[in-house]
């Protein structure tokens, strides 16, 4: 099913996912962990897990993810990395509930509810999608700040605080058109950064040849 050409040397696997397949690339594993652990934990928390349970489960999910990615269990034709990430996380979630059930402890109400429907929960996928979008926004903002000049950072902060174009203009002594322009640049840059992040989620073995 792989479309990779023999002429393509393995060193061109520049995406994070590609690097992850090289067991020697420890840096890749750390980067992957840094990026996705929070996302997984946040999602699990949003499904009602306590902090400790969410962290334990995230650990299991991450291990599963890396093993799966290395064993080529991940098949990009089935909806891409986001879908794979979701499937792994959801299966971690239902495993968690199964364990709970076996202990037969009186579990919390929320847990009971989700346990009954962990796999059929139509809200779960939407919630995951929401977390995933927010996750990429946060990642992009974090990267944006690293290089942003004072003015650009001030525009970002004001936008985050939900201030109107008019007040931003007053506060920063700019005209409204300039604020508007600056916000458009912010949007374009975030879009670019997010596009980069998403490329890192692609599998080099599945990328169509240009």
């Amino acid at each position: 099913m792989s479309v990779s050409r023999p002429s393509q040397p393995p060193t061109t696997s520049v995406t994070l996912l590609g690097r992850l397949r090289d067991p020697a690339d420890e840096q890749a594993w750390h980067e992957f962990d840094r990026r996705y652990r929070t996302l997984i934990v946040r999602f699990l928390r949003s499904r009602g897990l306590q902090v400790a349970d969410a962290e334990d489960t995230a650990q299991i999910v991450l291990t599963k993810l890396v093993t799966g990615l290395r064993a080529f269990e991940y098949d990009a034709s089935k909806g891409g990395f986001r879908a794979y990430l979701f499937r792994c996380t959801r299966s971690g979630l239902s495993d968690f509930f199964l364990r709970q059930d076996n202990h037969a402890h009186p579990v919390s109400l929320e847990t009971t509810r989700i346990a009954a429907s962990a796999n059929a929960d139509p809200e779960a996928e939407r919630a995951f999608e929401r977390e995933w979008v927010e996750h990429h926004y946060r990642l992009a903002v974090e990267r944006y700040r690293v290089t942003a000049e004072n003015r650009a950072a001030a525009i970002l902060d004001a936008t985050l605080a939900g201030r109107s174009v008019k007040t931003i203009a007053e506060d920063l002594a700019m005209n409204e058109a300039a604020v508007h322009k600056a916000q458009q640049r912010l949007r374009d840059r975030l879009r670019e950064l997010i596009a980069e992040q998403l490329r890192d989620e692609e599998d080099p073995h599945e990328r169509p040849s240009e």
Binding site: T147, A148, E149, A152, D188, R189, R191, E192, A195, L198
Partner: peptide
């Protein structure tokens, strides 16, 4: 990273699908 974020007319943003 491809230049400062507030560069006036940067390269067109990579299209997301």
């Amino acid at each position: 990273m491809n230049g400062p974020p507030n560069e006036p007319e940067g390269p067109a943003a990579a299209p997301l699908d």
